[in-house]
């Protein structure tokens, strides 16, 4: 029982106008404490659905999700989540956004401000505390979202393509920063992506999902020592392996990707 998170035979069926639609079909997965796990798969295969269920925002049709030995039933601040789309509260300045979870928990003004400032510094946004979200770039917004998710000290961080909507250079920088944060905070991270490069650079392990109805087809351990170089021979080799698995899946897919 040394798993941080356990997904046991998760299925998810949506009832739509055209009838039942199985998004996930028997997903099993174990995540170790402090592990950085990337989930990769074609668009529309159910990655977001899976993450939302771990967060407690949605419920599996069957199967159980066990976090720290307890079944996940509803959302709670012990799981931090960074969403695929921008999710800052537009009416709150950066500082107040990061403070949000602490404010809800009833922490006093001074205390929560100190904590929020610490995390804002961690994501490199000192000096932007009093900016509104509309004054920030896309990359900065996602950094604030990460700081906000970390501020409540969750034991696991769920990230749904957090860098999907920023440009390539910013994305590289954010990836490096995330690895630093991960090394410093020792969080377990569940990171959804559809970028092979991202998975190879970040992950301890990569879980490959099949097209719909999705299940996990393969878990690959990325045994490249850190710090990694994006262009090293090992990285290229692993990338090739991962691409092969993905294209195998894609050839089966009937959805357009």
């Amino acid at each position: 029982m040394n798993h941080k998170l356990e997904l046991q035979h998760i299925t998810k069926t949506y009832i739509t106008e055209e009838g039942e639609m199985t998004a996930l079909d028997g997903v099993n997965l174990e995540v170790k404490p402090a592990e950085f796990l990337c989930i990769i798969g074609p668009s529309g295969c159910g990655k977001t659905t899976l993450l939302r269920m771990v967060a407690g925002l949605d419920h599996p049709t069957s199967g159980t999700i066990i976090l720290d030995g307890k079944e996940v039933k509803c959302a709670s601040p012990d799981r931090g989540m960074v969403f695929q789309e921008f999710s800052l509260f537009p009416w709150r300045k950066v500082l107040k956004n990061v403070e949000f979870g602490l404010e809800i928990s009833g922490m006093r003004d001074k205390e929560r401000q100190a904590i929020a400032e610490k995390y804002i510094a961690l994501v490199g946004l000192q000096g932007f505390e009093n900016h509104y979200p509309y004054e920030l770039s896309g990359g900065m917004k996602q950094r604030v979202a990460i700081a906000r998710a970390l501020a409540t000290e969750p034991s696991i961080l769920l990230m749904d393509e957090p860098f999907g909507s920023v440009d390539a250079q910013t994305r590289n920088i954010l990836q490096e920063e995330l690895l630093e944060i991960w090394a410093r905070t020792k969080k377990t991270i569940l990171f959804v992506t559809h970028s092979v490069d991202e998975a190879v650079y970040l992950a301890d392990r990569v879980a490959v999902m099949s097209a719909r109805p999705a299940c996990l087809v393969k878990c690959l351990a990325v045994d490249i020592p850190r710090p990694r170089k994006r262009t090293s021979a090992e990285a290229n080799e692993f990338r090739a392996k991962l691409l092969m698995w993905l294209s195998l899946e894609r050839s089966k897919a009937c959805v357009t990707v």
Binding site: R52, S105, R148
Partner: peptide
């Protein structure tokens, strides 16, 4: 997404 963010952060 804002509602869900609120939920995840403890609302």
């Amino acid at each position: 997404v804002l509602v869900e963010t609120g939920k995840v952060l403890g609302c």
